Simulated scan of single mutants.
Amino acid sequence: MRYGVYNAILHDRSLPEALEVISSVGLTGIEINTGGFLPPVHVPNIDEILTSDTARDDFLGIFEGTGVEIAGLNCNGNPLHPTKAIGDKHSEDVRRSIKLAARLGQTRVVTMSGLPGGEPGSTRPNWIVNAWNSAALDVLDYQFDVAAAFWKETDRLAADLGVKVALELHPQNVVFNPRDIRRLVEMTGATHVGVELDASHLFWQQMDPVAVTADLGELVFHAAAKDVRVNTERAALYGVLDNGFRKLDPSEDRVNLGGDEWANEWPKDSAWDFVALGRGHDADFWSRWLVELNKIDPDMCVNIEHEDTSLGRVEGLTEAAGVLFEAAEKVGLR
């Protein structure tokens, strides 16, 4: 197994500085953001790398002697967004990231399946949470048709370039559980589209990441070590689908998600939170998960994604790495 970090948490510093942090906590890989919801801070010259061997070699030279290697690319976004300005950009970011991966000798690109509107002409994505009525299933059929058309074409590109695309099982996407990814693969005949097993989004949906990993088997291409703590007293009142978010004012610091869409402020009395590895589930749990991943691919990249707002960037990464290493050592995977 290989252990690294998704670099978004280190976007506040240069790539060489980020590599120093990663090496200092004992990790050996960096999953690099290449577009989608976030700008490609650590690889701003993607187009140049795609066309210039010198630019490519210069970029790869940054990693020499650092003890850290590239451990996949990441362009999480909504390539199926019904607003053209967002959907076109994010879908092109996926294609460009696949081409970039091939140029850099990488075989994994992480992204999301995407979420269309509910019908032709829509301008807002429509996530069907519980399809108890017939109209909701009609919407899902339409959305899967849209998704299948995009991913069938994208799978061909990925296969031609020897790159596998790992879809995060993320809510507010067409694909967010094992049933969904199997449906997409069946509809498209995809050979190079599978799953990034991010445990965090499974936890709060009451899914077991160990069971999901075992169930999906070779459809799991990549993994994200990220934890969730369910705040049981609040969850008992609001449920895990609580929408107690706050829209941020333009004068406030906020993250653009494309076009005129922005990330909202997380509920202050949330039913669940992203936390550093170990603060939701202990090392024994993570060791069982690593065993299942290792059965699929002993060379799989498992990259920490740090989004615990109660901890500093390096502080949280250090804590998470310690728990991941403890888990790995328990089962002889480090």
Rank of each mutant, 00 (worst) to 15 (best):
M1V: 13
R2Y: 07
I9K: 04
L10F: 15
E17H: 02
I22G: 06
I22N: 06
G29E: 12
G29R: 02
I30H: 00
G35V: 04
G36I: 01
V41L: 10
H42A: 04
V43I: 13
P44Q: 12
N45A: 15
I46M: 01
D47N: 08
D47H: 05
T51Q: 07
D53E: 06
R56E: 09
D57Y: 03
D57P: 02
L60I: 14
L73Y: 05
N74A: 04
P79Q: 05
H81Y: 15
K84V: 07
I86D: 07
H90I: 08
D93A: 03
V94P: 01
S97T: 08
I98W: 03
A102I: 03
G105P: 00
T107L: 07
R108Q: 06
V109S: 01
M112G: 08
G114V: 10
L115W: 12
L115A: 05
G118R: 08
N126V: 10
W127R: 02
N130L: 08
N133K: 11
A135E: 15
A136I: 07
A136Y: 14
D138Q: 09
D138E: 15
Y142E: 00
Q143A: 02
D145Q: 01
V146M: 08
A148L: 02
A149S: 10
E153N: 14
R156A: 12
L169T: 07
H170C: 06
V174C: 08
V175W: 14
F176M: 06
F176V: 03
P178W: 12
D180M: 08
I181R: 13
L184S: 00
L184R: 01
T188D: 15
T191I: 02
H192T: 02
V193W: 03
G194D: 07
E196M: 02
L197D: 14
L202H: 15
F203S: 02
Q206K: 09
Q206G: 06
D208Q: 11
P209E: 14
A211Q: 13
T213H: 09
T213V: 09
D215L: 12
L219K: 06
V220S: 02
A224I: 10
A225G: 12
V230D: 04
R234M: 12
L237C: 06
L237T: 09
G239L: 14
D242C: 08
D242A: 06
N243K: 15
G244N: 11
K247S: 10
K247V: 09
P250W: 14
V255Q: 11
A263R: 13
A263P: 05
W272T: 05
D273K: 04
D273I: 08
G278C: 11
R279L: 11
G280E: 05
H281Q: 02
A283S: 12
W289M: 08
E292P: 01
L293P: 01
E305H: 05
E305M: 10
S310I: 06
G312I: 12
R313A: 11
R313Y: 11
A327W: 00
K330V: 13
K330N: 11
L333F: 11
R334F: 15
